[in-house]
């Protein structure tokens, strides 16, 4: 890995920390606060690609694990990871990797449409890991956990539109991904 890659990975991990400063909206019935940090997850995959994007989020998760207060509301530490919402946080590196992989494949035809598709799959990846995790930790039937998580959908749609618009613009101004076929 080149030093440049390392710096880019650290930059996106730092972007996650900065996004965590934006106050999270606590929804009364949702398992986790509505956070702008998912924007960072999708952007990391869309702009850095699979490997660097995934590593950036892995690095961020490491900051959480070692006890730095980098989650919304100054949360952090192992308690959050082992708690009912830990799956969402652990899903972030996977989601960034998936978004990155799709973006690399579609790099030559990358536009708002394909960007939306990549980011939508990334968002679904977060659900696919986070929801079963909370179902298992809380011994809850899956359908109930899905119901509880439905509150996130509108916010996530807005977030993935924002990310797609920005990703297309950054690709034009400062492309960093090498296409993969």
């Amino acid at each position: 890995m080149r030093s440049k890659d390392l710096a880019q990975i650290a930059l996106f991990a730092a972007l996650m920390v900065v996004l965590g400063f934006i106050p999270a909206v606590e929804l009364p019935l949702a398992p986790a606060p509505l956070t702008s940090q998912t924007v960072g997850v999708l952007l990391a995959g869309s702009i850095l690609g699979a490997r660097r994007g995934g590593l950036a989020l892995l690095l961020f998760d490491l900051l959480v694990v070692v006890g730095l207060p980098v989650l919304p509301g100054g949360r952090g530490g192992l308690g959050v990871i082992l708690g009912p919402t830990g799956g969402f946080i652990l899903a972030w590196p996977v989601a960034a990797f998936v978004v990155g992989l799709l973006t690399e494949r579609l790099w030559h035809r990358y536009n708002l449409g394909t960007a939306l598709a990549c980011n939508a799959v990334g968002t679904l990846t977060i659900y696919a890991i986070g929801i079963p995790w909370s179902a298992v930790v809380a011994h809850l039937p899956a359908w109930r956990a899905i119901e509880v998580s439905a509150v996130y959908v509108p916010g996530d749609i807005i977030k993935l539109i924002i990310c797609s618009v920005v990703a297309v613009r950054v690709r034009r101004a400062y492309p960093l991904i090498e296409a993969r076929t």
């Binding site: 390392l6 650290a10 991990a13 730092a14 690095l59």
Partner: peptide, 11 residues
């Protein structure tokens, strides 16, 4: 270790 230090510097 370096990556963590860089991240904290970038914030």
């Amino acid at each position: 270790g370096l990556a963590i230090a860089l991240t904290i510097r970038f914030v």
